[in-house]
Design a protein around this nucleic acid. Structure first.
Length: 462
RNA sequence: GUCGCUAUAGUCUAGAGGCCUAGGACAACAGAUUCUCAUUCUGUGAACACGGGUUCGAAUCCCGUUAGCGACACCA
């Protein structure tokens, strides 16, 4: 049975788009193989928890379509799915390792550890724990009984550690280069390394598809699985999304929260579609496809090893394609949901044909069409020199009996001719008078939507 | 610094020894259409990091160099 998971930490205000990216692969791999996709919350660092972060995260994940078969929200056979609620478990397993001689207690202070690392770096050695406590276990245990805070450390074997990565192939690392990782912190919480191994095993995760940042610590996990005598899951380390400068995608240099994009009016489907194209390509070279199709054609073995730069410009282009392919009514509804109920649906609906190929995301709508809902407060061009021409236009429009698109165009062209103005100049003048802006949807159509009275009023006011 | 991963245009990628004078997409630029913008159409520039092998033949395999990134916490 194929079971995959993502295990985000609620240390930010929402899901990182990188988590969506790896989440998507986990989701697809599970669904493709008739397996389950699990969401587990790794909230073992009490100091970094962002209030409300977890809630928002799960909400976004749901909104975007990566629905979990098991999660803190829906539960499941291996509940709880929140590490802070599984505390007693980790302690038990840590103790088991100590009993087996695979781990040991340590009471070294932060100061001593710091000092030690400084020395090691000065001597150009690999910074790692010197096993001071390991060599004095009896004394350490005595002090612990007296109440000294302690941690449990993994006793890293000095051997070669080998594992197979589904994407990168055979990975070999020397145990002697690896630190005696802390497994259980002095506050009783597990570190990531213990938590992840215990839970992935208990939850029967078959494929660990996660970011490349975890590659260097995977040997520690392999050692843990061996120490427990558990069967190894399959590992697949996926490349990290990058900033334009190639560093890993960070909020300092890019919007990284999924809601940053959704709130701009990027569709979840479009975001997933774009993210799918990071480090993977459709076998037929297609760029536009549904989640269902992705699931059908996705294969872990096709995932790229190079790290892609996240390009918001191409994301917007893709979102524009989704807008263009959308049913007109559906688009009108999306737009209203985005800009709010204060904007009448009837007017929005009329604008759809004018803007469907002009906007790339929902937040583009109001800057383009806002003038239809209220009079311009300022004008991008000074219209004072056109006063008489505008008066004439106002009168001619006012005289129109049939205020239709065909008639309007004829009247306006005639006005331009009479005023001795080139069409481009004339329409630009009128555009600014009506919309306040130099850029707008097609002017005649916009005027029809506004209606005769409103047009006359605006021309007069400008 | 140490360990590890990676290396096709500005960006996303195709390419699994001959089909490659390297294909597609975004972006850029130029032209056509248009009352602005956008769309649409046509066209242009732009890449196999470098050096050695292996081979009749290498973007593709091997080694080295260089560069980028990641990891080196009682953070995940």
């Amino acid at each position: 049975m194929i079971r995959t998971r993502i295990a985000p930490s609620p240390t930010g205000k929402d899901v990182h788009v990188g988590s969506i990216s790896t989440g998507l692969m986990n989701f697809a791999w599970a669904k493709k193989n008739g397996g389950q996709f699990i969401i587990r919350i790794e909230d073992t660092d009490q100091t970094r928890i962002v209030p409300g972060g977890e809630k928002k995260m799960l909400e976004t994940l749901g909104k975007i379509g990566l629905t979990a078969d098991e999660s803190p929200l829906v539960g499941g056979p291996y509940a709880p799915y929140r590490q802070s609620e599984r505390l007693s478990l980790y302690k038990k397993y840590a103790e088991e390792l100590v009993t087996k001689g695979k781990a040991y207690y340590c009471i070294c202070t932060a100061e001593r550890l710091d000092e030690m690392r400084k020395q090691q770096q000065k001597n150009k050695q690999i910074p790692k724990y010197d096993r001071h406590c390991f060599h004095n276990q009896e004394e350490v245990i005595k002090k612990i009984k007296e109440g000294t805070p302690y941690v449990v450390r993994l006793l890293m074997p000095e051997k070669e550690i080998v594992f197979e990565d589904l994407i990168r192939g055979r990975i070999v690392m020397q145990g002697s280069n690896l630190d005696d990782q802390v497994l259980l912190k002095s506050d009783g919480f597990p570190t990531y390394h213990l938590g992840v191994v215990v839970d992935d095993h208990l939850m029967k995760i078959s494929h660990i598809i996660r970011g490349e940042e975890w590659l260097p610590s995977t040997p520690k996990h392999v050692v843990l699985y061996e120490a427990f005598g558990w069967e190894l899951p399959l590992f697949a380390h996926v490349s990290l999304l990058r900033n334009p400068d190639k560093s890993k995608l960070s909020k300092r240099k890019n919007p990284v929260w999924t809601s940053d994009y959704i709130d701009q009016g990027i569709f979840p489907e479009a975001l997933l579609n774009y993210l799918a194209l990071m480090g993977w390509s459709h076998p037929e070279g297609k760029e536009l496809f549904t989640l269902e199709e992705y699931i059908r054609v996705f294969d872990l073995k096709d995932v790229q090893t190079t790290a892609p730069v996240f390009d918001p410009v191409k994301l917007e282009w893709m979102n524009g394609l989704y807008i263009r392919n959308m049913d007109k009514d559906a688009l009108a509804e999306k737009i209203q949901a985005f800009i709010g109920p204060a904007y009448p649906k009837e007017i929005i609906a009329k604008t759809i044909p004018l803007i469907q190929e002009r906007i790339k995301k929902l937040s583009d709508y109001l800057p383009l069409c806002g003038f239809l809902f209220e009079q311009p407060k300022q004008y991008e061009v000074d219209l004072s020199k056109y006063k008489t021409v505008l008066q004439d236009v106002s009168k001619k429009v006012g005289d129109m009996k049939d205020f239709s698109l065909e008639n309007l165009n004829g009247v306006l062209i005639a006005c331009a001719k009479e005023a001795g103005m080139k069409n481009s100049e004339f329409f630009m003048m009128l555009r600014v008078a009506i919309t306040g802006k130099k850029i707008s949807p097609p002017l005649n159509d916009s005027m029809i939507i506004l209606g005769k009275e409103e047009c006359i009023k605006r021309i007069g006011k400008a």
